[in-house]
Design a protein around this nucleic acid. Sequence first.
DNA 1: ATGAAAGCGCTAACAG
DNA 2: CTGTTAGCGCTTTCAT
Lengths: 348, 348
Amino acid sequence: VVTVHDVARASGVSISTVSRALTSPLLVAAATRERVTRVAAELGYRPNRAAAGLRAGRTGTLGLVVPDLENPYFASVTKGVQSRARAAGFGVFVVDAEEEPDREGVETRALLEQTDGVVLASPRADDEALAALLGGVPRSAAVLVNRELDGVPSVVADDVTGAALALDHLRSLGHRRVVYVGGPATSWSDRRRREGLRAAASAEGRGGRGASDVDLVELGAFRPQVAGGYSAADLALGTGATAVVAYNDLVAVGLVERLRARGVDVPGDVSVVGFDDTFVATLASPPLTSVGTDLRAVGAAAVDLLVARLAAGGEQPEVERVVRPTELVVRGSTGPARAVGQRAGARR
Amino acid sequence: VVTVHDVARASGVSISTVSRALTSPLLVAAATRERVTRVAAELGYRPNRAAAGLRAGRTGTLGLVVPDLENPYFASVTKGVQSRARAAGFGVFVVDAEEEPDREGVETRALLEQTDGVVLASPRADDEALAALLGGVPRSAAVLVNRELDGVPSVVADDVTGAALALDHLRSLGHRRVVYVGGPATSWSDRRRREGLRAAASAEGRGGRGASDVDLVELGAFRPQVAGGYSAADLALGTGATAVVAYNDLVAVGLVERLRARGVDVPGDVSVVGFDDTFVATLASPPLTSVGTDLRAVGAAAVDLLVARLAAGGEQPEVERVVRPTELVVRGSTGPARAVGQRAGARR
DNA sequence: ATGAAAGCGCTAACAG
DNA sequence: CTGTTAGCGCTTTCAT
């Protein structure tokens, strides 16, 4: 392995000049800098991050904790974090907490001490535990993704608006009774999505009829998986709603599956809207209308926040809350509401 | 941050004893060891990996390079690597090479020097470049996943057998003309899958009719995405085959999509088999029959290999090649071959 | 069995 | 602008 000493010897300067030439180019004469840089390249010198960090107090590393890497949602966030971090010169320690709040806590704590900062995506811990975890963060910084907490910078998608978009879309298709198949009670986004739906449902429609014209029925906590949607389908159908908004794309897929099995056509008889707009939405049949956001951009924004705080050093900027726009992507799973009583019976 | 010094002071011993008590328990008196351990826990001491590695020459870190984190295949491998590495006390640097061979090379090289070892999943580089990259690996170890190369330990799925299973399955359903919609020409697994299909096609059927009873038609390189399958569908149909084996699940989904759009029923008119058995296979409609392997186990096995080599130190064990079993998961996309001429015309 | 001391590779004062 | 000198936190001889 080639070290600063090798480069120093080969270019006839001291090791500190090598270090400076490579990390603070402005502090060394142009000629020297150029020579050192060239020699370093020739020798294939690569600074040892661990050593650099040990002395400088930084590690050049960021941590990322996600609940489940196999979930496309987090895969995208991870990709965004990874990519932006690399561009900023940081390596990324990725940890999969396997949906366990305890592991999440332990791993986050460990990362906070071994990295310059950590991105915590959709933490499963409750507010109290989270506050305790991130409370006395000294030199390391933490940024939340898809979750907000007092005093902690965060990047979230504008789910409230997104949910409203979904409801307005259904309203414009003539749906007057919409059911929401919700996710885990502890889910922060679930709360936001409900909020948005309620607000949009109680607001006047575009038609300006003066009073709310859409009934919103909210269903309880279902598992955020295909199985959850499958389980919820009969209940949803029983409400007499002509449209369903699902907690996420997977739930939507489960809903569609069960509805079809019962002979209910989507979108002919019932429209279904998903959330997150992961590639699952495009794969499903029919392809799902879904509310999504650019998840890689979310991850990248989180890194930006982190890097900004690190660069700021002592004088921390005020706690920033980035809200990324959401958009409704209309695909084949939503269509005009069928007039009441017009629904076809079970087929097949 | 609490360091060895703090623990040493609080427990009345020297820092070297603390270090030993925590890393080589056998070298210190039971009583001392216990006290130090307890104090360390009370103080919430967490060893600084960078510092430990600097002196000891290890980093306690593994690297993982994948072509695309959003690809469910690699998401699973990553999960397996992450999980096993953690269990073995290693952190994992994850790098997404974004399908670019150049970045792959650069990142791998960087990781090789900053970590104790790296797992290289499905490298896109050709044999030559790969050999150059991994050739003079000094102290760091490298393990390949889903790829083999002389002198480098690897973990691969038994795609040859898997492909044969798929073909036998189709044969048993009465299919006598099967088309393979292949992936990128540079893909190592593509070659193995073709091999397996050819071998099975040219072998006698279960019926022991003495001569090959299945025609295998191989189609050229298609993009390993849904779009690739969509593009290949018409060509595949034109061969007169009653069954299609796709390079992977995504391609299979694209095939099904286009076939259906043309009024060809799956599996009624044509059977389709995917590869990898990612969750895409379960989400598709109909759910895909697919050849898969436990990808998390693949990732875990790669870490095992790496850790074993690291533990071995000087006397490196011989180059191991782990071949993980594949299995055929039969779902709704395959069915009995329809008698010739019986295929229904375009519907809908 | 334990302590003292010497660095791992690098950066950050501190002097020139 | 550049060289010298201390260490960062830890492991590991080398003594004892």
